[in-house]
């Protein structure tokens, strides 16, 4: 609608990232470049996914396309895993760096442009606000996946962990399937993210005796 609306949306979406960046101590440990590196990995991964989808998706088989697209999320996990393991950052910061930078990259690549084009345009529409909220929820999701992935590497693979991971990878498909209007969908997503986030956190905490308190002081 106007420039103000664009600023609103931008702030709604971007400030939580800045906050998490600031408060979670990433800034102290100077792993800005790590984030940039992870972000670039995200970009490469998305690019690869798109290339793969473009070449292999055929419309003839009815559900084959969607299934393939959603199962590509698995690739995300894998890349996330590799980034975490080889990220060169140790300790419990690893999951935070990768999760955060992954979410930030996603925000930058998928949200910024529509905001600039849509929000600034004349026509007012709620869509941009919903996208902003959605990116916040996305952050939580990515962090929880990152945490879980960290567990995945260090401890045995308990079934709830695997389940959670699968749930996370196919969350987009699940949400699409819900026949809800945008606002209700957002609410559902928010709750889901909260639940998963907290459970992931509690799981990690339970899993490794040494707490992560130093991370979130």
């Amino acid at each position: 609608m106007t420039l103000i609306h664009f600023l609103n949306c931008l702030s709604l979406a971007a400030v939580p990232y800045v906050i998490t960046y600031r408060l979670s101590g990433l800034s102290e440990h100077g792993c800005f470049w790590k984030c940039v590196q992870a972000a670039s990995c995200y970009a490469v991964c998305q690019l690869g996914k798109m290339l793969f989808l473009a070449t292999f998706v055929i419309d003839s088989v009815p559900y084959y396309g969607e299934a393939l697209r959603h199962s590509m999320e698995v690739l995300d996990l894998v890349v996330l895993q590799t980034v975490m393991s080889r990220g060169g950052v140790y300790g419990d910061l690893r999951f935070l760096v990768t999760g955060f930078s992954w979410a930030a990259a996603e925000f930058i690549f998928t949200r910024l442009l529509p905001f600039w084009v849509g929000a600034r345009g004349v026509e007012f529409s709620w869509r941009y606000l919903q996208m902003a909220l959605d990116s916040n929820i996305g952050l939580v999701f990515h962090l929880s996946t990152a945490i879980l992935l960290a567990q995945w590497k260090s401890s045995e693979r308990s079934t709830p962990l695997v389940l959670a991971l699968i749930l996370l990878t196919y969350r987009a498909a699940l949400f699409d399937a819900l026949p809800l209007d945008p606002w209700a969908l957002l609410a559902v997503k928010a709750c889901a993210s909260a639940v998963i986030g907290l459970s992931a956190l509690s799981y990690t905490l339970n899993n490794n005796q040494k707490g992560y308190s130093n991370v979130f002081h």
């Binding site: 906050i19 408060l23 907290l198 905490l205 992560y212 979130f216």
Partner: peptide, 18 residues
């Protein structure tokens, strides 16, 4: 609200740790 929740995240961690 987000700022506060993030800064107080430690409470949550502590609440959740065993």
């Amino acid at each position: 609200v987000v700022y506060v929740s993030v800064s107080e995240f430690g409470l949550v961690v502590r609440a959740l740790s065993p």
